[in-house]
């Protein structure tokens, strides 16, 4: 440990620790780009699991996408699903082990495009699982192609002149879509770019896991995130761009709480 300042030496003691890396995350270095929102989302889930004391009762489902290696980073039981099929796999696991906590961790390509079918039907059946949906409006892992959630006019490698809704359709707001289904119990959209938003997101994740504990039904948490590599920006610029553009199409806040819509759709 490298301590730079004299006055810090007396503070840096184990009894003064107010924040350190949770034990539910492994020591592996995350495979994400610098500044990626995935890291914070991972940490929040891991901290929730640690605080609830359910490390040995939780089963996570990793998707295909940037977070395909999520099982390397969480020190819990994980299963990796075929592309888009995380919610289907979660359904099976939850039905076989009804006392375990099951969550899926999916990106927008996995959940909204390839797995759109599975997601809608799992939500419609109201499986008692938690779905964490990271929305960055782009296919990050494969090199920044257009995703269903890509904004109008946004330049990606497969929409080099910007997304034209006439030809390529409109951004898919799947969170609003699943909120309309009677099977979902808690639907919310959060972000992790600022300390205040991070705290709110953590509360939402905690609520989702508690809903599952009480057999309330399906909780769906969208986390609007950045993809600074895909958007070709620095992490700080990407967060600013996200605030100015993404939040217009994907406004933050609760959409459905305790099975009741709390927002006009």
């Amino acid at each position: 440990m490298d301590v730079k300042f004299e006055s810090w030496k007396e503070i840096i003691k184990d009894e003064n620790i107010v924040f350190k890396k949770t034990k539910v995350l492994t020591d592996n270095v995350l495979s994400y780009c610098p500044g990626c929102g995935h890291g914070v989302a991972h940490r929040l889930i891991a901290e929730t699991i640690e605080e609830m004391g359910i490390q040995d009762q939780t089963i996570g489902i990793a998707p295909v996408g940037c977070s395909v290696l999520a099982y390397e980073f969480f020190d819990i039981d994980m299963q990796q699903a075929a592309h888009g099929r995380a919610t289907a796999l979660a359904t099976a696991i939850k039905r076989l082990y009804p006392n375990k906590f099951v969550f899926t961790y999916q990106g927008d390509g996995d959940l909204a495009a390839i797995g759109g079918n599975e997601t809608l039907h799992a939500c419609n059946r109201g499986e008692n699982i938690v779905i964490i949906f990271i929305n960055n409006g782009i296919y990050g892992m494969t090199g920044g192609q257009m995703a269903p959630t890509t904004l109008e006019g946004m330049v990606t490698s497969t929409s080099p002149y910007g997304r034209d809704p006439q030809m390529m359709g409109h951004p898919l707001r799947i969170t609003e879509l699943v909120a309309m289904l009677p099977g979902t119990y808690y639907v919310t959209r959060q972000a992790v770019h600022k300390p205040a938003n991070v705290r709110k997101t953590k509360k939402a994740i905690r609520k989702a896991f508690e809903n599952q504990q009480q057999n309330k039904g399906l909780s769906f948490i969208e986390i609007v995130s950045n993809c600074n590599s895909g958007w070709k920006m620095t992490p700080v610029e990407a967060n600013k761009w996200m605030e100015e553009n993404m939040f217009k199409v994907f406004p933050l806040g609760d959409i459905k709480v305790d099975g009741e819509l709390v927002k006009e759709l």
């Binding site: 730079k4 300042f5 006055s7 810090w8 007396e10 503070i11 840096i12 003691k13 003064n16 620790i17 107010v18 924040f19 350190k20 890396k21 949770t22 995350l25 270095v29 995350l30 994400y32 610098p34 500044g35 990626c36 929102g37 995935h38 890291g39 914070v40 940490r43 992790v192 770019h193 600022k194 300390p195 991070v198 705290r199």
Partner: peptide, 27 residues
Amino acid sequence: DVIKEDCTACENCVMVCPDTVITLYKA
């Protein structure tokens, strides 16, 4: 890198750090 010793333990940095590399002490 840390350049000053004015830290007030507000927790902002540990909240946004994606790689959880910061440990925070408070006294």
